[in-house]
Amino acid sequence: MSKVTLKGFILIPESELESVKRELVHHKRLTLEEPGCIMFSVTQNSENPLRFDVYEEFTDKVAFEQHQKRVKASHWGKVTVNVERHYEILE
């Protein structure tokens, strides 16, 4: 199986920025502990503080799908429900 890479960015509503930033620390830790996670980076853009650049690598499609499933059911999934996502997924 081949590696899955997700890259892009998210846009946070200004009124939710602080709660997203607080939960991001927990979300990063949990993701990096997942089986199959090779790389996970979410960084606040220096020019637009409401934009966070995202880069993820997983060993295969199964690991990536498990990550997506966990995220949807997590506190991060609830906190980021209003976040605008702009991703490209490469397999």
Rank of each mutant, 00 (worst) to 15 (best):
M1V: 10
M1N: 09
K3Y: 11
V4A: 02
V4K: 02
K7L: 07
G8R: 01
G8I: 01
G8L: 01
L11I: 11
L11M: 09
L11Q: 05
P13V: 06
E14A: 14
L17D: 06
L17I: 11
S19H: 09
S19V: 13
V20P: 00
R22V: 12
R22W: 15
E23P: 07
E23Q: 15
E23F: 09
E23C: 13
L24W: 05
V25F: 08
V25Y: 10
H26Q: 14
H26W: 14
H26T: 15
K28H: 14
K28W: 10
K28T: 12
R29S: 12
R29V: 14
R29D: 14
T31W: 01
L32T: 15
E33P: 02
E33R: 13
G36E: 01
G36I: 01
G36P: 00
I38M: 02
M39Y: 14
F40T: 00
S41G: 05
S41Y: 09
S41P: 04
V42C: 05
T43Y: 04
Q44W: 01
Q44C: 03
Q44F: 06
Q44A: 00
E47M: 08
N48I: 13
N48Q: 14
P49Q: 02
P49H: 04
P49E: 07
L50G: 01
L50C: 06
R51V: 07
R51T: 02
R51M: 05
R51C: 03
R51H: 07
V54Q: 01
Y55R: 06
Y55S: 07
E56Y: 01
E57N: 04
E57P: 01
E57R: 08
T59F: 03
T59G: 02
T59C: 09
T59S: 07
D60F: 00
D60K: 03
K61H: 08
K61M: 09
K61R: 14
E65S: 13
H67P: 02
H67E: 02
Q68L: 10
Q68D: 11
Q68M: 10
K69W: 12
R70I: 04
R70Y: 08
V71E: 11
V71P: 03
V71R: 06
V71T: 15
K72I: 11
K72C: 08
A73V: 13
S74L: 12
S74G: 10
S74N: 12
S74F: 11
S74Q: 10
H75W: 12
W76H: 04
W76Q: 03
W76I: 05
K78G: 10
V79Q: 04
V79K: 06
V79S: 03
T80N: 05
T80D: 02
N82G: 05
E84G: 05
E84H: 06
R85K: 15
R85S: 04
R85M: 03
E88C: 05
E88T: 10
I89D: 02
I89P: 03
I89V: 13
L90H: 11
E91C: 09
E91A: 12
